[in-house]
């Protein structure tokens, strides 16, 4: 469990990025952190694995304050996949990249081999095992970064903008994959702008603006509220936009999913005819 208690964070440059955040993320929860550029989303989640320490307030991970443990200790339980894979990747081959952390955590050789195979296969990058990560496309590098974290099987997985640079198919796979992780009781925290992605995964959502949490609730409740979304520079999903425009015809306005939308329209047309 992650408990955030009245968290403030000011960067050394003087920029006040977080202004009093309180939040509890339970084990096995799936949370999306949304909001405009510069709202403090990444700053917030960097506190969860101790990369940043509070200026004021406190973060407890499983009851232990992040001030009292090193990033290395926290990382065993909280894996962080960066927004820009180039901030994370450094090895000469994809395989080495994944082996690195496993070795640091002191896993046995046989376990390392097994975990590497598993992670490469999971993220569909086995064919690049011996390739330099820097020869890969942006989307592929992102998957390698994710594979290297999942390989050591942390309880909490934080993904900063996982869908950036992913093509449609990879995005769908990633989505299945994240839902699957969550179904296995992993805590998944995703920082994202991607409303369509959130509409399809339907996690709990917190919306941030200027260092504060504006609203906390279900995806359906938040994504269909254009007023609060506007505060955070988020546009409703396309399906919601369509239903909002047709509100005067008596259609519901809290629709985020294309299948639900189809069902509602079919019902309405059949009833009439």
């Amino acid at each position: 469990m992650i408990e955030v208690k009245d968290l403030y964070y000011t960067y050394p440059t003087g920029l006040e990025a977080l202004k009093g955040i309180s939040l509890t993320v339970n084990d096995g929860e799936f949370l999306a952190v949304m909001g405009q550029n510069g709202a403090g989303k990444t700053t917030l989640v960097k506190h969860f694995n101790g990369l940043l320490k509070p200026t004021k307030g406190e973060i407890l991970v499983d009851g232990v304050s992040t001030r009292d443990v090193s990033v290395a200790q926290l990382a065993r339980n909280v894996g962080f996949v960066f927004q820009n894979p180039d901030h994370q990747l450094f090895s000469e081959t994809v395989e080495e990249e994944i082996v690195f952390a496993l070795r640091n955590f002191g896993f046995e050789k046989a376990v390392i081999e097994k975990q590497v195979d598993w992670a490469l296969n999971l993220l569909d990058v086995t064919q690049y095992r011996k390739t330099s990560p820097f020869m890969l496309s942006g989307g592929e590098r992102k998957r390698v970064a994710l594979a290297s974290i999942l390989a050591w099987d942390p309880q909490v997985i934080i993904l900063d903008e996982p869908t950036i640079g992913q093509d449609h198919q990879q995005k769908e796979k990633l989505q299945q994959f994240i839902l699957q992780l969550n179904a296995q009781k992993k805590t998944v925290i995703v920082v994202t702008h991607d409303v369509e992605f959130v509409a399809e995964c339907s996690p709990r959502v917190i919306l941030m603006s200027q260092g504060k949490i504006v609203v906390d609730g279900t995806a359906k409740k938040i994504l269909t509220n254009p007023k609060v979304l506007a505060q955070a520079s988020i546009v409703p999903p396309q399906i919601t936009q369509i239903f909002l425009e047709l509100a005067d015809l008596g259609l519901p306005t809290d629709v985020i999913d294309v299948h639900e939308a189809t069902k509602i329209l079919l019902n309405r047309l059949r009833k009439r005819s």
Partner: peptide
């Protein structure tokens, strides 16, 4: 080349 990938939807728009 994907010039808005890091931008929020309003920023991208």
């Amino acid at each position: 080349d994907e010039p808005t990938s890091f931008l929020d939807p309003v920023g991208a728009e």
